[in-house]
Design a protein around this nucleic acid. Sequence first.
RNA 1: GGCUCGGUGGUCAAGGGGUUAAGACGCCGCCCUCUCAAGGCGGAAUCACGAGUUCGAUUCUCGUCCGAGCUGCCA
Length: 484
Amino acid sequence: MTKIRTRYAPSPTGRMHVGNLRTALYAYLIAKHEGGDFMLRIEDTDQGRLVEGAVDIIYRTLEETGLVHDEGPDKDGGVGPYVQSERQKAGIYMKYAKELIEKGEAYYCFCTEERLNSLRTAVGEDGKEIRVYDKHCLHLSKEEVEAKLAAGVPYVIRQNNPTTGTTTFHDEIYGDITVDNSELDDMILVKSDGFPTYNFANVVDDHTMGITHVVRGNEYLSSSPKYNRLYNAFGWEVPVYVHCPLITDEEHRKLSKRSGHSSFEDLIEQGFVAEAVVNFVALLGWSPADGQEIMSLEELVKKFDYRRINKSPAVFDFQKLRWMNGEYLKAMDEEKYLERALPEVREVLPETLDLRHIALMVKTRIETFKDIAEKIAFFKEVPEYDNSLYENKKAKCDASTSLLVLQEVLPILEGMEDFSNDALFAALSAYAAEKGVKINYVMWPLRTAVSGLAVTPGGATELMSILGKDETICRVKAAIEKLS
RNA sequence: GGCUCGGUGGUCAAGGGGUUAAGACGCCGCCCUCUCAAGGCGGAAUCACGAGUUCGAUUCUCGUCCGAGCUGCCA
């Protein structure tokens, strides 16, 4: 059996869309599951859409997600070049296009944009709108073509598709798909600027680069019959097609930039970790036989079976991504976590506080790094709050009982030398025991006084120990005043 | 409009002629708790519709409806 070779072939037009990331991931997994090779090819045939720096983003994203390629522009595997503009310069596409012309499978077309536009609005004899090219230039004589070529008339090269019969192709996910040949447009293979279209380049490149499994989004499903005809015209073996279901937004539309979390980089900026994004995206359209959800890239490689890929589109559930990211955060190595958490903490708090401790204390309470700031802001300043916050039926306390507790506890606090969590807890427990009240009867008022919040990332004593004696006493006094 | 594909809880999904139709997110409740969170336990919620095939359809077939993709000298 031949070694599996898959490829990820992005256009360098900006950030990496999560749909593309998922496609890249599946291509990677299909190859790696069988010990095959995964390669990177840059599809920069649309010169007008190129974005500077986009190739770097592709490399960086692949590296951050762990999808390391075995071959690519930076790793020659002998079938290069791996950049389509370079392949174009080398004359690869033109050579194959001419081969097709000789075989009668393609032809020069000199039609102007105006004529093409008028064609699009035309209505055929059956009253239907015409949307395929009318093969006007196919009927040009050899002499006419030569003359126009010699005169330098701009041209494109079109595929010559039959108008009768049907074409069938097989996709691993969707099965056999058959279309009427009359539906097949004579698509442009080579543009007037000499660059190939995706439609042509992908076939030529996938074949000449030895790709065995073509993995791509299902937006290509309807044009695949035309690609099949190209393979057949060349007499090439058709690769295994794996069309992946679309990823949509909450409105069930193809994920777009406006959803705000459509690219990998957006997600990272929003406080997600790469591993979680990869894990999440893997489950959009696929699930392992054992139902496991949290999986590392290695586990994905082990479990991935493309036959289990779904047919129906998947909604990108941001909520679930958040949950999953939280799982990764909880499991994350402390130092690694701190690398990204600390900067977030520094955004809101001064270095005088124990920032490490604070960062670690929210580790299990956040879902993304961006959740940190709002959870710890109270360390800097007690927010405005209403005295009704002291009411708690479980602790059986309210504003008036809290005032009493605070007043009695203040001297204890003031008398403490050791303001550590343990010491504070011991002292306050002793006080509660002495008074014959439950511990939360005293902790609730204190935590409220010190934080001004109903929900905090730690218990009363932990917060106090971090705040320190002076600040704690200051806050308790302010609370007493507020309650009086 | 045409063509292609799709349709299991709100979302991701397993299953695929006979099941109490898994599991996860989210939601609700309880337990735990120096507040939460985490963790544990439990709950509500699903086979788009109509025919047909069958002893029996969520599962197979057809139709309808709904949705999406394509219909670019973009990929």
